[in-house]
Amino acid sequence: MDIFLQQLINSLSVASVTILIGMGITLIFGLAGIVNFAHGEFLMVGGMVTWLLVMAGVNFFIAMFGAMAAVGVLGYVAERTLFRFTLNRPMNGFIMSIGLSVILQNVVIKALNEVQKSIPDPIAKVWVIGGVDIIAMRAIVVAITVVVVAITYFGITRSRYGVALRASVSDQDTAALMGIPVRRYVTGVFIYGSVLAGLGGALMIALFPITPFTGSVVIIRGFAVSLIGGLGNVGGAVVGGLVLGLVDALSAQYGYPQWTDAYSLVVMIVILILRPQGLLGGTLGPRAT
């Protein structure tokens, strides 16, 4: 029972980071209609900023907010200079985001280096809950994620803001005829999603080391999570994250570990083909051109 609970919290903490990045993607892809391949790099930048701040002596939790702000700004700049021009041709936006991800990755390599970065456990405590030892930081990661998911769910999905976003993604012009300030909302969602990526990066580096290549490793899981659950569906991102977490755990126990990543990929491909709108149902993203 003890081991189970520990493993559960461990898996959940990993799944949390995946959920955060997936949530960012599902909102941006599903509700703002932008496919941002550089989202993984956004997370990586968040982690790196956290690292820099912590190494400079800043308290982790303040550094975390610093990372969120930094990536939020990054997102704002990217949207205003790049993605806003491709709202009518999302394919071009996707290709540009490939370029952006290459740039970010290599700029970070240049500025820092390829060596992995890590920070000491910010809390370095072990809580005893019900007689079971639990690493405090992991539990906190899960807690933070739960709070953020709740905020996002009620703040975006369930609010009229969410309805407006869904309308905008399905028909931009008609949404404008309803009085919806589509461009402004798109920018807002993009910034919010980017902030989530920054948070994910900060939490990730609190748990394990990251490298400039971490972005490209997580991005595909992020897309997997959002596509499995359904684009624009916050609950779906949670389900997707848990599904992938489960696949990982099962593969570690019963499968061949080196094929772990493969299983998640296959799951995603299968769901994409059989049910493109995801398990919980979501938008189909921008009308692809």
Partner: peptide, 9 residues
């Protein structure tokens, strides 16, 4: 599936 989904595949 649509273009973006396909690229991911």
């Amino acid at each position: 599936v649509g273009g973006q989904h396909y690229i991911i595949i």
